[in-house]
Design a protein around this nucleic acid. Structure first.
Lengths: 337, 337
DNA sequence: TTGTAAGCGTTATCAG
DNA sequence: CTGATAACGCTTACAA
């Protein structure tokens, strides 16, 4: 039994023959220590295997260096890509990511935020459901900063990062029209997430302007299986659509697979397809899907930058809202105009 | 400026008219508090918005409740699936996950472990590169527990979870043989990870027993693009293989796409394919890939269970090693025998 | 530049 | 069951 677990600054100080504050200063960037003291401290620290205790440091500084990532559907391509970028950038900014998965729990986001508060996280980034207004307030009141990605909340305080979903819907409608398609469809999940609904509405609105009706169908989650089911529903209709915009790439993959393997349709010849997210699979030659790229890198950059910026203007009730544009990536699932 | 950030137990105690220890006890499961005191404390805590400071608690208890997840390639289907399961189970066990991404850094795992130590993580789970022996020792010496997943290290102390990769390779060789294939190939990445190499060796060994040679090719990472390149190399050969075992599903997806779309081959008619991991895409009808399922759930369960088990036997130098078997999932990419 | 001393929010110990 | 008191490991005035 190694009863004595960690080495403390005290012990380092004794070994180096200096005061414990000297040790502390050595490990505090920008503190005044003489080169000689610093050398001796570092030497002793190295020999003893000393590591600053960030728990204690956080306690004193009232700043833990922890950022909480509140995520659902981690195993999904888009989410994991975003997660990857966020963690990398947070690390580069000297923060550490605490991960909270809200997949299999209820009241989950709220509980997650409680957890974040207990560990005195400096901030939380929410990629998942929308938290209760009261708990958001609690976070803010406790000096936590909040980032909402594609969540579209209307309360002031958090940084809200969203895309131009509505306009994207419009651009697809136009692209379909140019490709000669006249029987349009929109495949959505029944989740009813604001960003998903905006894509739908933008698409329907633009189609209407072009004088076209849109068949809208909603079913299940935003995943592959739901896409298959949607295809089965829409492609068995008497009047089969010749173009479909799927709310996410995963839906599109399921839709395409069903269209090809169950209905024997040729894409883009008999059916044009577009998706949203630009997940890796969209570029695979089995799909070669025209889609909108989520600006994952930019989202992460903006979020982390904002977290780094002084907390002075954070408390001010300014509307922090960022609107990014999703770039249309042309591939082979839509016929050339 | 809300100068006073968090509410402390002190304040709750004052408001409730009890001592601060009473407050502490109220929030410590299994401590003795009278119902009346507890009620008053909880009431005051609720009113003030009090949350136990886990930084301070960790400091006192010498147990932070933090488990460090050291991961690379998060955006990959298999990794993100494992990550998902681990985080869920850790949360259920009352732990919190700290996430460290080793994708874009060097000496990364070592630095990650340092970070884990600084936050006094109770344990680290490593899904990424292999850490330096010295730093592993440091972790263990500091009372941290280590779990290595598919890493196959030989030092004592950490829990090592591995699969029966070698045997899996053998089973695929037999399956190919039964399907009538006589010209076998193995598509591997050039990463040379032990688990990948064991799959290769098991496959080659079993094929040899059946009297068959295996063309082995290694290239790039374990991803889709590498699979395409491998296909281009192997399928342009004079003697084209009629069956290929890909070290990962991602490689298999790339290989299949190239085989079909660039070489016009029909699977499984002209070419049988098997993969490893059973990522979600393997079940998509575009691939319908026969593959081995990583027992993600079991891996996570074992890891978390072991972390929960008393730290008494942890310090003992017993060999902690778990060997799980990967189940073969039959789909359409291998002809029936 | 350095050391001393106070304090951060907890929990553990030990009387009462 | 309860309340005082002493840690825990660190930072940061303040004084030297």
């Amino acid at each position: 039994m190694s009863s004595k677990l960690f080495v403390s600054a005290q012990e380092v100080a004794e070994k180096a023959g200096v005061s414990r504050s000297a040790v502390s200063r050595t490990f505090t960037p920008g503190a005044s220590v003489s080169a000689e003291t610093r050398r001796r401290v570092l030497e002793a620290a190295e020999a003893l295997g000393y590591h600053v205790n960030h728990l204690a440091r956080g306690l004193m500084r009232n700043e833990s260096g922890i950022v909480c990532l509140i995520v659902s559907d981690v195993a999904t391509p888009y989410r994991s890509a975003l997660l990857r970028e966020l963690t990398i950038q947070l690390q580069n900014a000297g923060k550490v990511a605490m991960f909270i998965n809200t997949d299999r729990s209820d009241g989950s986001v709220d509980r997650a935020l409680q957890q974040a508060i207990r560990y005195r996280a400096d901030a939380s980034i929410i990629l998942s459901g929308l938290p209760d207004k009261s708990i958001t307030q609690l976070c803010l009141r406790n000096g936590q900063r909040l980032v909402l990605i594609n969540r579209d909340d209307d309360q002031p305080g958090p940084l809200k990062i969203n895309l131009d979903d509505f306009e994207s819907g419009g651009r697809v409608a136009t692209a379909f029209f140019r490709a000669g398609c006249r029987s349009l469809a929109f495949a959505n999940s029944e989740a009813g997430t604001p960003s998903l609904m905006r894509r739908e509405h933008g698409f329907v609105a633009a189609a209407a302007k072009l004088g076209l009706d849109v068949t809208v169908e909603r079913h299940g989650s935003t995943g592959y299986e739901a896409g298959k089911v949607l295809a089965q529903r829409m492609l068995t209709r008497a009047e089969r659509p010749d173009a479909v915009f799927c709310a996410t790439d995963l839906l599109a993959c399921g839709f395409m697979d069903a269209a090809r393997h169950q209905f024997g349709l040729s894409i883009p010849h008999q059916l044009c397809v577009a998706g949203f997210d630009d997940i890796e699979q969209a570029s695979w030659s089995s799909f070669d899907l025209t889609t909108f790229a989520q600006p994952v890198m930019t989202i992460a950059t903006r979020a982390v930058e904002w977290l780094g910026s002084g907390r002075d203007d954070a408390t001010s009730e300014v509307e922090h809202s960022v609107r990014l544009t999703a770039e249309l990536i042309w591939r082979g699932s839509i016929r050339a105009g």
